[in-house]
Design a protein around this nucleic acid. Structure first.
Lengths: 215, 215
DNA sequence: CGCATAATGTACTAAATGGTACATTTGTCA
DNA sequence: TGACAAATGTACCATTTAGTACATTATGCG
């Protein structure tokens, strides 16, 4: 994985980027699985090609590593959002596509969702420390705002839409779908999480959102 | 709190119920605050009138205590739901009241929400072990089902409503509102969590739900 | 009253866990 | 080539943490 070419004598070569990436990837999995307090540094080490020494060398301490994991996870979301090209569609269609993307992205990235939930358990204390993330995340709202403006101009959207509330609505459904799957499934059965169940759910969310913005 | 009348000589009296309740209450707070792995038995002991000895005497081990906490939390929800008297209202009004209750209950009981989230991080492994909870929670759906039936009979609800999906919709909004408050507030500002913001949000959710079931 | 059992106090332990000290090697650049 | 900083290996430590051993007291019951 890290493709380190071992030296014949000593068995190792310098490869800082790969080592860093390896740690980060493994730590993401471990923290997402067990949380910050539950995630063991020793387990991360074990599942890595490197040593505990290197974690502290690159990330300072456990919290530093966790913060790096969190920042990387949020950065990936943004990259995903940027890949959409909503300007090619009329407002209703663009909104639908944004909701669908959000739904699918969360479903496909449960580790991201788990990290968000874990961060909420910690009352977002680490998120607050991150200058990077806070600035990063306003773009999601921008896209929505643009869609709403277009929709109003086209005469299809209400004029009094609060796009932060709209974003809240979209996120709540799409995130809950992943974050609370385990308990919901246990209590109310797995029908919603079957392939058709998910398709229906997505359709339901899209139409609820469209309904909400429509005149 | 526990109102234990101390013996003059030895400084203690038997008071099993109060001790058990004291432990449970404190453990609820500690686990809700820090999670299962993050919640320290020693901290629970410190914030309790009793000793560590008693925790293990009554609950076996840390997991047993956590499970007891979880079961008690779910039991309280049910008690709250039973206090509603939805049969006194027409279907649309009853639905609105159920949604409003759900919204308010979650907002007023963040510890319950946090426990649910923590349980989801653990993939509901403890919930699965609890015979009590699983049977308990089907009543929420029953209420909804009854409302839907009435609504159809009154000619105001669509006939093809999936009440589990409907319950999903209600729960996702009301739970997300509390569970993800920290990160959402940090990223998008606190307007939604101001008093009027919450009122507006609740109204928005109610009307979205009503819209969804209406013909 | 005396006895059996439930309830509680006190002190302790083994293991897990985050973190570090110290030595060594690798790569770069003059 | 040689020196110097960056990168890595190895072994170790102090503390925290869940859990327990053992003794003692309270209380109900015949």
């Amino acid at each position: 994985m890290t493709s380190k070419i071992k030296s014949r004598k000593t068995g190792w070569h310098q490869n800082p980027d790969a080592v860093r990436a390896d740690i980060l990837k493994t730590a993401t999995q471990v923290f997402a699985e067990h949380g910050l307090s539950g995630g063991r540094v020793d387990e991360i080490v074990r599942r890595t090609q490197t040593s505990k020494r290197m974690i502290y060398y690159y990330f300072g301490d456990k919290n530093g590593l966790y913060l790096a994991v969190l920042e990387a996870a949020y950065a990936r979301v943004r990259a995903g959002e940027d890949a959409l090209h909503l300007e090619d569609f009329d407002s209703m269609e663009a909104l639908a596509r944004l909701v669908e993307f959000t739904f699918d992205y969360h479903a496909a990235n449960p580790d991201y969702v788990r990290l968000v939930m874990i961060e909420n358990i910690h009352r977002a204390t680490h998120l607050k420390k991150s200058d990077t993330i806070t600035q990063l995340n306003l773009t999601a709202i921008d896209k929505l705002e643009q869609i709403c403006r277009d929709g109003v101009a086209e005469g299809r959207f209400r004029e009094d839409i609060d796009f932060i509330a709209l974003h809240w609505m979209i996120t709540s459904s799409c995130l809950f779908n992943v974050s609370n799957r385990s308990t919901f499934e246990q209590l109310y059965g797995g029908a919603i999480y079957s392939p058709e169940g998910q398709v229906n759910l997505k359709r339901m969310i899209v139409s609820a959102i469209q309904n909400h913005v429509a005149i």
